[in-house]
């Protein structure tokens, strides 16, 4: 993918909505196009956090190992980001990321990206705000998931929906 195509892909990526053109250019310089096959593991639990991904297409399952199986906690698709922990210092991956469909993404080396944040605080602030919004959205979603709102009700309150 040529740099101009990468800039175009970044400009249309929902995660980066509203980012200034000079920041998109900076990201484009650090981006590397990458593809994954179905069932390919992008990272495993315990791996050092290295890459931050912007998913362009496809779907990735975030999984946690349980005795004898993996449980899918969440799926992430085109227009979303993956691997935000690579933007934090000394954090290992907490989950496994496995492709359930062919995935096309833009990958960014976490340490290089955070070094750029140090050089350009405005760039770092704008991007980390977007990361924080994603983290907050996923926290809210996880809390809702934990409520198990679709669970069976007792007979006392049975009704028609």
């Amino acid at each position: 993918m040529a740099t101009s195509q990468i800039i175009a892909a970044l400009a249309h990526h929902p995660f980066l909505d509203g980012l200034q053109p000079n920041h998109l250019d900076k990201l484009a310089m650090l981006a590397c196009e990458i593809s994954f096959e179905p069932d390919q593991v992008i990272f495993r639990e315990g791996d050092p956090s290295s890459f931050f991904y912007l998913i362009l297409s496809g779907r990735v399952a975030i999984e946690v190992a349980a005795p004898g199986r993996f449980l899918t906690i969440q799926t992430i698709g085109g227009g979303e980001e993956l691997g935000w922990s690579s933007l934090l210092d000394q954090v290992n991956k907490q989950f496994r990321a496995r492709c359930v469909e062919p995935v096309c993404a833009l990958a960014f080396d976490g340490p290089r990206l955070t070094a750029e944040f140090e050089n350009d605080h405005e760039f770092g602030y704008m991007l980390l705000r977007k990361v924080l919004a994603t983290v907050a959205e996923r926290l809210r979603a996880t809390r809702l998931q934990m409520l198990d709102v679709y669970a069976r009700k007792s007979g006392k309150g049975e009704s028609g929906q």
């Binding site: 399952a61 899918t72 799926t75 698709g77 085109g78 809702l144 998931q145």
Partner: peptide
């Protein structure tokens, strides 16, 4: 369609329904 708990064979979305709005 999305589910809160996807089994081994489920290849669809996992997560709350509000997460689908972005798609």
């Amino acid at each position: 369609a999305t589910v809160d708990y996807g089994g081994v064979s489920w290849r669809g979305h996992v997560g709350v329904v509000t997460a689908m709005f972005r798609h």
